Simulated assay, not measured.
Amino acid sequence: MRWLRDGFGRVHTYLRISLTDKCNLRCRYCMPEAGVPNPTPNAALLTPSELGGLARYLVQERGVRKLRLTGGEPLLRHDLLEVLRALRSVTGREQRAASGLHAFGLTTNAVHLERYLPALVASGLDAVNISLDTLRADRFTALTRRDGQAHLPRVLRAVDAAVDAGLRVRVNCVVMRGRNDDELETFCEYFAQAPARGLSEMVDAVRFIEYMPFEGNEWHQGKMVSYAEMRQRLQPRLLRDTAEPDRHDTTKYWRYRTRDGTEVPLRVGFITSMSEHFCAGCNRLRITANGHLRPCLFGRHEVDLRPFVQRDDWEACGAAIDAALLRKAFALGGASSALNDLPQRMAHDRPMTAIGG
């Protein structure tokens, strides 16, 4: 196997493919109010066959073992069902043994998830990460700039439907001071009460994410709630997780004890990109909706893979990927500090939705 190795010896086995940079929400931490400037037209997106070919190459020839579809909002992709069919040769459960893929996931805001669940499950989907930053309809409206009365109930129904479909479900919440940081325990308690909603299982984890700087997302340090502060607020509810941590995991996990003292299977996780970065164990690559490889979320360097994919020139494609990996910085895209240097660098980069989550 010709592994995807960078200049620091890190092997990259996790591939995140963005299907579109468009989104039906306008979350304040993710994108400008007017949306992405100059969104990628459909004609410039990787086609389903190109996506399938690139995924097969990276899984079968280069050792990718985990694949996740992202965006933007991936369920807005105009030819989503064709994409899923094209990927099935590597993502389908019957094809996994031959392809080498271990896991297939999706990150979504879940507004349209119920509609597509049957097709996603049929394509081999194992897991879904659902972005949800509040349980209050008025705050949903304020945070997403969209109608919370209409959308929030759909998202909560989709969470339960995904659990009921047997998927591993994680709910991701970006925590912002003065906007939703008073809901930490409320989130945990809500998702710990799955039996009250008629579910035999609950979500695998609620994960709280430190607010990160991107172009047009109104970030400043005063709005960021650190891992240490979030953990301190939840301390009476948290129990040490005894599971062996995965060195590639971006999340610090704890077990949860409800307000009435019951220990439940729900895990509480913290993604600490700003206060305690996890770059040493990075094994991720990102491909944007138009086919650019981005070795680091915070890195500025990208390489366009689409010309190689269109020519089926996998040798040249592999060489371009290897060269890009050798340029990958050890941490934070080369920034010297997450809290000082990084915000200035990211202010002149693309919005998160254009990079691919």
Rank of each mutant, 00 (worst) to 15 (best):
R96E: 04
T186N: 04
E82W: 11
N109H: 04
R170I: 13
E82N: 14
A127K: 08
R88M: 14
R157N: 14
P153H: 09
D182Y: 02
T144W: 03
D79C: 08
H102W: 14
R115Y: 09
L87G: 08
R177T: 05
V159W: 03
A142M: 01
D160P: 11
L117G: 04
L132N: 01
V174C: 07
L84K: 06
L113A: 02
R168T: 15
L117D: 04
G124E: 04
A161M: 07
H151M: 14
G148Q: 00
D164S: 12
H78Y: 12
P153G: 10
A161Q: 04
L81N: 15
A165W: 04
A103Y: 13
D147W: 11
T91F: 06
N129F: 11
R93A: 10
S123D: 13
G105T: 03
A137F: 02
T107H: 02
G100H: 05
H151S: 14
A150M: 14
L156C: 12
G105Q: 11
G124Q: 04
L125R: 02
L135P: 04
R154F: 08
V90R: 02
D79K: 11
N109M: 12
G92S: 08
A162W: 05
N172Y: 09
D138N: 14
T144Y: 10
V83Q: 00
L135H: 08
P118T: 12
Q95D: 11
R154S: 13
L184E: 02
V128D: 12
P118R: 11
R139V: 12
A86W: 03
P153E: 06
E94V: 00
E183M: 05
P118A: 10
R179G: 09
A98C: 11
I130S: 00
A161V: 05
D133N: 08
R93Q: 07
D79T: 07
D182F: 10
